[in-house]
Design a protein around this nucleic acid. Structure first.
Length: 186
DNA sequence: CAGTGGATGCTCT
DNA sequence: GAGCATCCACTGT
């Protein structure tokens, strides 16, 4: 099936993904922080056109785009927009809900607040790597569960980029203490 | 607490 | 050969 939420504009899909539960082999949690990377967005990997790395971004929506960040970490994106122009949503933080013990073991720490608070952290906690690049998020081993109640979402500038810094395309669940920047305020 | 810098590999110029 | 959509350990208060 085509997944309606991600088939539309990335600017609606990104806030719309907040509150969904993402699982890989039954391990994961609620999405509480994402960033939108649009087509024609200088900060997006797709901006310079199609390359072997970004190939998946130009394919059907609802797939995973996985890339290596700073030589160390994996980062995961949900491909959006069915016209294949290269839009995607970067997953930045989850509220861990399922498979806590496995995530603790993979991350090598106990504090649940540090398990999935950051794009590199959440991929490590879920065991998500480039072998999942191009995978369909609606099919096993992945699962996506919609939120059971409406979610309040706040908007702010994106983190860690050097281009289009002013665009407020980071979306966080309002009041969440599970986002990658929550510990700063706490 | 805050701030700094090292690890590390792949992509594109 | 530069530049990253990062994380963590370390420093100094």
């Amino acid at each position: 099936m085509t997944w309606e939420l991600v088939a539309g504009s990335v600017h609606e899909a990104a806030p719309g993904l907040i509150g969904w539960t993402l699982l890989l082999d039954g391990v994961g949690g609620r999405i509480v922080e994402v960033e939108a990377y649009a087509a024609d967005d200088p900060a997006s990997h797709s901006y310079r056109g199609r390359t072997p790395r970004t190939e998946v971004m130009f394919g059907p929506p609802g797939r995973l785009y996985v890339y290596r960040s700073y030589g160390l970490h994996w980062c995961a994106n949900v491909v959006c927009e069915e016209d294949g122009r290269g839009a995607a949503v970067l997953l930045r933080a989850l509220e861990p809900t399922r498979g806590l013990d496995l995530m603790r073991a993979r991350r090598g720490l106990d504090d649940p607040r540090l398990l999935c608070a950051g794009p590199g952290r959440l991929t490590q906690a879920l065991g998500l790597t480039d072998e999942h690049n191009g995978a369909d998020l609606t099919k096993p081993p992945f699962a996506l569960v919609p939120p059971s109640a409406p979610v309040a979402v706040e908007q702010s500038p994106r983190i860690g980029i050097t281009k289009a810094v002013e665009k407020p395309w980071r979306y966080v669940e309002a009041g969440s203490s599970w986002s990658s920047r929550a510990r700063r305020a706490a």
